[in-house]
Amino acid sequence: MSVELELADWRRRVAELYAEVRHADDPAAGHRRWRAGRDALFREHPQSPLPADDPLRASGLPCAPYDAGLRFVLPLIPASDPDARLELDAGDDAGTNLVPVGRVELPDPVGGSLEVWSLQQYGGGLFLPLRDGSSGRVSDGFSSYGGGRYLLDTAKGADLGGDDGHLVVDLNFAYHPSCRYDSRWLCPLAPAGNTVAATVRAGEQMPTA
């Protein structure tokens, strides 16, 4: 199979996995399905960002237990700066262009505001990245990638759903971008405005031992 078809298959499987999550009987069951599916892709798929000898292929990706208190259905409210523009490096003299479409306010125990971005490349898509108190350091025994994690990336099928004017934002589904696992991948990272001070002890994490 060509690399292009492998990549198309990867994205198709990710989209199918999130569709299963959205239709799960309860969010915790959906999270278990997401973890199992993501581990299988990273272990077996030819487009896995894990090097062939990476022990995470056998152990699975480190992830915190599901916390029902970190799932929210949030209204999309006006962006802090609707005229803002971001161009994030994507390598080979290319960039990923984003414009804000709104923001979500995370309730306690997290708190803080996150901008929701729209990808301006072909096909578009919503992009919701996160940096928190664990990004790039160990905080209360928990650590995540310094470049942040993704909550939503609908262009890649990472979509937890919502309704008219609302988004499902479940911090348990925070996941690391591919560049966390292999430097040959170039990923748009969370901008400074998508930072919360609290440590989000949910979702994928870095090994701390």
Rank of each mutant, 00 (worst) to 15 (best):
S2Q: 06
S2R: 14
S2F: 12
W10Y: 03
R11K: 14
R11S: 12
R11I: 11
R12Y: 07
E16V: 12
Y18K: 05
Y18N: 03
A19Y: 01
E20A: 14
E20Y: 04
H23R: 15
H23M: 14
D26M: 06
D26H: 11
P27Q: 05
A28R: 12
G30A: 05
G30M: 02
H31F: 13
R33Y: 04
R35L: 13
D39G: 08
E44G: 05
H45S: 05
Q47K: 10
S48L: 06
P49H: 00
P49D: 00
L56Q: 09
S59I: 12
L61V: 15
P62L: 09
P62E: 05
C63H: 08
P65G: 03
Y66W: 04
Y66M: 04
D67K: 03
G69L: 00
G69A: 08
G69K: 01
V73K: 11
L74S: 00
L74I: 01
L74P: 03
P75N: 11
P78I: 11
P82A: 08
A84S: 13
R85V: 15
L88D: 12
D93L: 15
A94Q: 15
G95E: 12
L98I: 09
L98Y: 12
L98E: 06
V99E: 11
V101F: 06
G102H: 07
R103Q: 07
V104R: 04
L106Q: 00
D108A: 04
P109E: 00
P109I: 05
V110I: 10
S113Q: 13
L114Q: 00
E115K: 08
L119M: 11
L119N: 11
Q120W: 10
Q121A: 15
Y122H: 13
G123E: 08
G124A: 09
F127D: 03
F127A: 05
R131W: 07
R131L: 11
D132M: 04
G133S: 06
S134P: 01
S135C: 08
S135D: 04
D140R: 12
F142P: 02
F142G: 01
G148I: 07
R149P: 00
Y150A: 13
L151A: 02
L151Q: 03
A155W: 11
G157S: 13
G157K: 13
A158H: 14
L160A: 06
L160I: 11
D164K: 10
H166V: 12
H166W: 05
L167Y: 04
L167F: 09
V168P: 07
V169S: 01
S178P: 08
R180G: 07
R180K: 13
D182V: 08
D182Q: 06
R184C: 10
W185F: 15
C187W: 08
L189W: 04
N194D: 04
T195Y: 08
A198R: 03
R201P: 02
E204Y: 08
P207Y: 10
P207F: 10
T208G: 06
